[in-house]
Amino acid sequence: MSRKIIALLLAALLCVSVLAGCGAKQETPAEDASPAEETTPAETPEEPAEETPAEETPAEETPAEEPAASVTVTDMTGREITLDGPATRVVALSAADCEVLCALGCGDALVGRGEYCNWPEEILDVPVVQSGADTNIEQIISLQPQVLLMSTMAQTEEQVKALEDAGIKVVVSDAMDIEGIYTSVGIIGKLMDKEEQAGEIVNGMKSTFEDLKAKAAAWEGDQMSVYFEISPLEWGLWTAGTGTFYDEIANILNLKNAFGDVAGYAEISEEQVIERKPDAIVTISMYYGEGPTPVEEILSRPGWDVIPAVANEKILNLQNDELSRPAPRLAEGAQMLYDFMYGE
């Protein structure tokens, strides 16, 4: 008997939760549909998904108060995206896109951020949306962005389609190298009507890299090798090989990536690090204020004392993703690495 009651209760709970989910979805677009209809002139040229859902009006493109000329960008998958005007409400799923937005001075336009977006600090108040496999389409729609910025690896085709059916433009920025960062800054700059600032950022980065490259090339000592430690020994050593930003920066700075023969991010053997004897180690381990710091931990590893980096205590701890993200901050990271390797 009691089992039946429990089963009924569970069934009821299930119904309620399903309904609750639907309710949230229906409420938001409906509420905002009325003001949207008032302000929207009838001349919305590209509204393909207009009539699809039966009763509820879909979340329409709400153009800015004074509609500027439409904006067309080609994203990094080659798709052409047209907006009625510069975007004022943006959800960014990748940490790099968040950083680009803020560097352009458009932090206010950010209405939702992916869970790994943590820089700069002021965006930490912006609501977090799930990204990757758990992307919560309902949640993104309820934030009513005009544009969703994401990288290709974060989302599936179906998810993109669902978002576009809801009237949200999806722009993919997926920089795989420094050249890609310039492109993505350009795309986001155009979207936000900040092309001038975008140009300044790109030029600033370019001149930093060129400057560092020239200075590093003038280094008279032997070429130094550097080992990038992405994950500490306790969890298995991971390093950054070719095709990563770490490697690209190392090349610019005339440094030899100790694991330049490995592709991408990979777990590597501790023995290999000892054998390759890097001149410097860059670790990105976080320090939580207890136990040994990441640098102390590396210095204390048995057998590592034969590594020049450990013997000379030449270990740099970067804690804020300076070298891992396709964002303007990469130039600062490169500068930090240069200062560390070559001294001031």
Binding site: E234, W235, G236, E267, S269, M286
Partner: peptide, 12 residues
């Protein structure tokens, strides 16, 4: 860091 725990590693 914790994510790596679930994978398990004998390094170190």
């Amino acid at each position: 860091t914790i994510m790596f725990w679930t994978l398990g590693s004998l390094q170190g």
